[in-house]
Nucleic acid binder design. Structure first.
Length: 298
DNA sequence: AAGCGAACCTGGCTGC
DNA sequence: TGCAGCCAGGTTCGCT
């Protein structure tokens, strides 16, 4: 469940359980996820205090008293469940009876405040790494990463500058984490719909010849911010599994206007269009062919 | 260089 | 009921 709003939802859920607590025991139950765990993973965590829990794009960053940062990425199916001390593990099909570990519980963090944090990831596209605080900006995960869409950098001007001259479809440009980092398939579809932009329009069409942003570029920047912050407020989107660390669901999926709505009527008032699906670089794009017509040329 | 498709892995749903 | 086929919120690799 991992685009920016879901990761931010997880961060907010983990924060009270982890920040200010020490790792008393870390159980790493397999040698790798998408990548091998770093050397001596558990030993480097045990005894360390979590000073802060941050987020960059779709990555969670736990600042440790050792000076290292625990980097966590959820991939496609990664999720965290927090169990407070004394509680028996419950909600969710992933966790077998009373406190036992489920099939894909790969890491369990026990904390000095009595809480347990379990990382579950059926597909194992997620990963964890440990990097010195001083090397965070330049480490392989973040070097070359694009701007934060909820930060101050996102504007019509930056979109025009980043997209100018690119013939790649808008959909692909928005998914490119080297340009803007944190958007994924759902929120790109939703943002393009709200802006009335065709997903196959060339990314460069948002920059005028002068290099200045078009009106649509300004709108797109605002819409991206709106969609993401609305989704964060809703606790993210829940598609197949819980989005929040206490097992409860996000509910932004009820606000989807095009994502996963192929064949349904367009929600725009007066619009007679039907939501269509097309495949771009191997991924489903949902859009309204009537509302989203903007500049397919150039 | 940019832009596709495939690959990584498991599970859930659809349809025969 | 069983099984094949397709699809899934992400990222990276390798081939045009």
């Amino acid at each position: 469940m991992p685009e920016l709003p879901e990761v931010e939802t997880v961060r907010r859920g983990l924060e009270p359980a982890m920040v200010g607590a020490r790792f008393t025991k870390v159980m790493q139950r397999r040698p790798d996820l998408r990548f091998p765990f770093p050397e001596r993973f558990a030993e480097r965590l045990e005894g360390q205090e979590v000073r802060a829990l941050g987020r960059r794009a779709k990555y969670l960053l736990a600042d440790l008293s050792s000076g290292e940062v625990l980097i966590m990425h959820l991939g496609m199916s990664g999720r965290f469940l927090v169990t407070k001390g004394g509680e028996t593990r419950m909600p969710g099909e992933f966790h077998h009876e009373h406190g036992g570990l489920g099939a894909h519980d790969h890491v369990v963090f026990q904390l000095s405040n009595g809480a347990s944090v379990t990382y579950n990831d059926a597909r194992r596209f997620g990963f964890m790494d440990l990097v010195p605080r001083s090397e965070i900006e330049t480490c392989k995960h973040f070097a070359g990463m694009g701007i934060e869409p909820l930060g101050n950098e996102l504007s019509g001007e930056t979109i025009a500058a980043l997209f100018a001259g690119r013939r790649t479809p808008l959909k692909a440009a928005l998914l490119d984490q080297r340009l803007i980092a944190g958007l994924g398939n759902i929120y790109v579809c939703e943002a393009l719909f709200r802006t009335g932009l065709h997903p196959e329009a060339p990314a460069g069409s948002l920059a005028a010849k002068s290099g200045k942003p078009t009106e649509k570029a300004h709108q797109l920047a605002e819409v991206i911010r709106d969609v993401l912050s609305e989704a964060v407020t809703a606790g993210g989107s829940t598609l197949r599994d819980h989005a929040q660390v206490d097992g409860s669901l996000g509910y932004f999926q009820h606000s989807f206007r095009v994502y996963d709505r192929e064949g349904e009527p367009c929600v725009t008032p007066q619009c007679t269009g039907t939501v269509s699906r097309l495949v771009q670089s191997g991924r489903s794009t949902f859009y309204c062919p009537v509302c989203q017509k903007a500049s397919r040329t150039r």
